[in-house]
């Protein structure tokens, strides 16, 4: 425990980096996945194409993608951008399916009713269809968040900062405390992130708790 208290500064820095590298991809991924999921729920060919591509992208191992990206988009090998892009790709791959499925599951009668009271397609999507899909989207985001938090540690193996550094450093120095600290910190961060997402999910869907 003394080691932990002596290194609170380092742990703080690593936490900031880790949160940044895992949360930013989730936000970017969500922004990109919403229009894609919408397209996949509207047109059958788009659905087949997007789901096949996401399935394929999701199959590619994270470490492999982080290593291959620099050659494709000419970034530096150790640039954190590679991690952000890789995790954004995974988040998109995961969310496109859940958003498409959730939008397809909105009852046609509700869509018809919204149209009948004067909603135009775009406002109807924002005001009716997407809100109804939020619980499923939040479930997808929770999976993406937890998996991103554990994947950022993998980046440490090729020199990218985050809690993973506690593993590589502890391994080189044969120092168990540092590794255990890293594992506990990762689990705590995953837990906190999961609770925050659940809370946001509840706050933006007040209607799910009415009339119980």
């Amino acid at each position: 425990m003394t080691w932990v208290f002596d290194h609170l500064g380092l742990l703080g820095d690593l936490t900031v980096t880790h949160v940044y590298l895992s949360v930013l991809p989730v936000v970017l991924g969500l922004i990109i996945a919403i229009p894609l999921g919408w397209a996949a729920s509207r047109w059958r060919p788009a659905r087949a194409f997007l789901l096949t591509v996401s399935g394929l992208l999701y199959t590619i191992p994270s470490l492999a993608l982080i290593v291959i990206l620099p050659a494709i988009i000419s970034t530096k090998t150790l640039d954190p951008v590679n991690v952000i892009i890789t995790l954004t790709v995974y988040t998109i791959a995961l969310l496109v399916r859940s958003i498409a499925d959730a939008l397809s599951a909105v009852p046609p009668t509700i869509v018809a009713a919204a149209t009948a009271i004067g909603y135009r397609p775009f406002k109807r999507f924002l005001g009716v269809e997407f809100p109804l899909a939020i619980p499923v989207v939040v479930a997808g985001l929770r999976v993406a968040m937890v998996s991103n938090i554990s994947l950022v540690s993998v980046g440490a193996l090729i020199g990218i900062a985050g809690y993973g550094q506690l593993f590589t450093n502890g391994f080189q120095l044969q120092f168990v405390t540092e590794i255990v600290t890293g594992i506990v910190a990762t689990l705590l961060l995953a837990l906190v992130a999961d609770l925050v997402l659940q809370l946001i999910g509840r706050l933006v869907t007040p209607w799910t708790r009415v009339g119980r």
Binding site: S147, S150, A156, Y163, G164, T168, I179, I183, T186
Partner: peptide
């Protein structure tokens, strides 16, 4: 699921 594999490995 949340357990970091690299951490487990080095430990």
């Amino acid at each position: 699921r949340a357990l970091p594999t690299v951490g487990v490995l080095t430990l």
